[in-house]
Amino acid sequence: MNAIDVHGLVKRFGDKTVVDHVTMSVAEGEIVGFLGPNGSGKTTTIRIMCGLLTPDEGEGTVLGFNIRTDSLRIKREVGYMTQKFSFYEDLTIGENLEFVARLYRLKPVEEHVASTLEDLGLTSRRNQLAGTLSGGWKQRLALAACIMHKPKLLLLDEPTAGVDPKARREFWDEIHRLASGGLTVLVSTHYMDEAERCHRISYISYGKMLATGTVAEVVRNAGLTTFVLQGPRLDQVAEALQGRPGVDQVAPFGATLHVVGSDKKKLEAALADVEKEHKGVKVSPGETSLEDVFIQFMSGSKDNMA
């Protein structure tokens, strides 16, 4: 049984279709990254999965429970970490955890709270008001609170936005530790390095699911060709390349220039021209990165934010 199995989910706000026939399945124990630009419907999809929003169309199960009829059961078994910190800022860390422990009827409360604090290294900050914590600590508290009841599925909505790299690294180590214990994780993110740490990724853009698979699969299926250019005056080269047929992306990376296109023949032709015009420029084949793929997706999909 898959931890998440939803198909054809549609959610409209007014006449705007925010989630447009999204189908997704996540196997047990998997860590799946949920990617997509802002406003593409990630949060909305996650909310539908944990019963906080009712889909206009579509069906599905989460942990085997129907998302339309069994949302109360789902809530008990799922840990949902909201995008915005949504614990009580006027309660201390300890009080927030006690609140959660009591709501999930974890007994004895004190033992659960103490061990959670211990695990996250928050014991010394137990009596600090949650509102006074820094971003990184708030994330850790939120994660701690939503895994306290030992959920089978974690839904994490941009858990590391605005968190420093070290804290992000620790956060992901924790996620992997939890997943190895059998927990399933669906995590939305903007960070490419985080996507690379997922078993699989799903890319959603303006409500539509555009790609699903391992990072390698997604990159391969995108069918992009990448070349790396080296040499003098790359800024002029970049300018010359912009807008040529076959050239979709031109991006400087340090002392090199990455040029990406979906039509290999046209791209090669364009590069051959540029090589002739600019003496000393050396063109070599490059690796297409996940980021290149996403930027390709983003420029390709039409904006329905308006």
């Binding site: 944990c50 019963g51 906080l52 809530k75 909201t82 949504s86 009580y88 800022e89 959660v100 709501l103």
Partner: peptide
């Protein structure tokens, strides 16, 4: 308005 409602609703309280 404080955003805590989403969390409260996501937890098992009737």
């Amino acid at each position: 308005e404080r955003g805590t409602m989403e969390n409260l609703l996501a937890m098992p309280s009737s």
